[in-house]
Each structure stands twice: as structure tokens, then as C-alpha cells.
Amino acid sequence: ADMLESQMAGELTERQAYFVGKILAGISQMTSLVDNIQDAGRYDPETGFYEIERSQCDLIDIVQRIVANHLVPAEKQELTVTVNASDDVPIISADANMLERAITNLVDNAIKYTPNGGKIEVGVKRHGNDVLVYVQDNGFGIRPEDQRRLFERHTRIRRQEHNRVKGSGLGLFIVRSVAQRHGGNAWVESEVGKGSTFYISIPLEGDNLVVRQTTEHDN
């Protein structure tokens, strides 16, 4: 299907291009569904079997890479996506793959649920003894009664504006699971008609701190 879309096998008619696009979208949705099901089981802090593989982790670099990878789908919806990173964000000891998956889920959701022409900001900042990663949009917003259950397994909000969006209801469950596996949390602040901001907090303590190696020069 990728070869057909790139027209390596010859030029496609408008009708053929339409159906190839539908096939690729279906494959992408199915892949995302399988990944979410697998990760929900692996990352669950209560039942998950996935061991955290810590390394020195640059959250600003991760955020910038994720945003760069989402510019094409954002442009298709005429969305403006920006990065806002504070200078005082330290390198942490964390599982980069887990955090990248969690932040990717938040950016994916923002692109899916923000109306065409909207704005999304992805940021990293230090807040007290925590590092916060946030994804802010100016979309439809979420009702207070729905916010309380958003991060539960298999939860999807039923609204007419969201009918076009497909998903497993596991993305935000994975986000919170990843945050909790690092001793942090995830939550949302939202107002209907104005948009939402999703947060991941990582405490700057314990195993999340980068231990400076002692060398002979230090002695």
C-alpha cells in the first residue's frame, strides 16, 4: 500500500488514491490498537511485568522529536503545533521508551480531538520538585464528570464531535501508568469550549535522579 501511495508502481487515479489512503489509515489504526493493548498490560503499575530500563533521559529532546514526527498529520488538519521548553529542566534517570510512548499518546490525542485550524502546545517545565510535561489544546474541552474517569482502562468520551475518532480507550490509561511507574502522576485540566491541558509529572527524587559518577579526578 505504501508503494502504491508513493506511485512507485505507476500513477494512481483519484479513486484509487482514495482507497489506498483508506487502507493505510486502517492499517495504522489497527497497529495502534494492538500496541495500546500490549502496552496497557506491560505498563500497568499493579499488574504489569515490564521492568523499567533507566538511562539518562532528556525530556526536551524527546518532546521535540515527537512533535517533529507529528507535523505532517497536524498540517493536514491545519493545526499549529509548538514546543515550549524551560531552560531549567534537568536530565533525569527514566525509561525513555515508556515516556516517549506516553507523551506520543497525548500528542496523538490532541491532534485527533482538536478542530481544524486549532493550536497545540507541547511543553516541558520544572515545577517545584517535579518535571512537568504538558500538552495543551484549544479544542472542545471536557466536562468535569468525564474528566474523573478519563484515565481509566477502556474509557472513551461519547460526544458527537468525536464520532470521527477511532481508538481503544487505552491511550490515557497508558499515560497514567507510565507516570505512576516513575513515581509521578497524570491528570487533565479542561474547560468546555476552551480546550484542555494534559499533564505528566515526574518527581525529581529517588531513582529518577541522575547519579553523578565519581572519577579519580574528583578524589
Rank of each mutant, 00 (worst) to 15 (best):
Thr31Leu: 08
Ser201Gly: 03
Tyr50Arg: 14
Gly193Lys: 02
Phe49Arg: 14
Gln180Cys: 07
Val122Ala: 10
Asp137Gln: 02
Arg158His: 12
Glu100Lys: 15
Val133Ser: 00
Pro73His: 05
Phe140Val: 10
Ser201Trp: 04
Pro203Arg: 06
Val133Tyr: 01
Lys166Ile: 03
Asn97Ile: 10
Glu191Pro: 03
Lys194Leu: 13
Tyr199Ser: 03
Lys22Leu: 15
Val178Ile: 12
Glu205Ala: 05
Asp146Gln: 06
Arg42Met: 14
Ala25Trp: 08
Thr197Val: 15
Val133Leu: 10
Asp88Ser: 12
Asp2Ser: 12
Gly171Ala: 12
Glu53Lys: 13
Gln147Gly: 02
Arg153Leu: 08
Ala1Phe: 12
Asp2His: 15
Gly206Asp: 02
Phe140Ser: 11
Asp95Ile: 04
Glu152Cys: 00
Asp44Val: 04
Gly26Ala: 09
Val210Lys: 08
Ala96Asp: 13
Ser55Asn: 10
Ser28Glu: 14
Pro203Leu: 00
Gln213His: 14
Ile52Leu: 14
Val175Glu: 01
Glu53Phe: 05
Thr155Asn: 02
Met8Asp: 09
Gly41His: 07
Pro45Met: 08
Val72Arg: 10
Thr82Phe: 03
Ser196Ala: 11
Glu145Phe: 03
Gln7Gly: 07
Thr47Gln: 08
Thr197Gln: 10
Ala9Leu: 14
Ala17Tyr: 04
Thr215Tyr: 14
Thr82Leu: 13
Asn129Gln: 14
Arg148Met: 07
Ala68Gly: 08
Val20Met: 10
Thr80Ala: 09
Asp146Ala: 05
Ile92Asp: 04
Glu145Trp: 09
Gly169Trp: 03
Asp2Val: 15
Asp146Thr: 04
Thr13Lys: 07
Gln56His: 09
Val131Tyr: 06
Glu191Phe: 07
Glu78Tyr: 09
Asn84Pro: 02
Ser6His: 15
Gln16Ile: 04
Thr13Ile: 05
Ala94Ile: 04
Met8His: 13
Gly195Val: 04
Ile103Trp: 02
Arg164Cys: 06
Leu170Ile: 03
Tyr199Val: 05
Arg54Gly: 07
Gly184Gln: 08
Thr215Arg: 12
Thr47Val: 05
Arg126Leu: 02
Leu150Asn: 01
Ile120Leu: 06
Val122Glu: 02
Thr31Arg: 10
Glu161Lys: 09
Thr31His: 13
Val135Pro: 02
Leu59His: 00
Ile52Thr: 13
Ala186Met: 06
His154Met: 03
Leu12Ala: 06
Gln29Ile: 15
Ser201Arg: 11
Ala179Tyr: 02
Glu161Ser: 15
Ala40Asp: 01
Leu4Ser: 09
Leu71Pro: 07
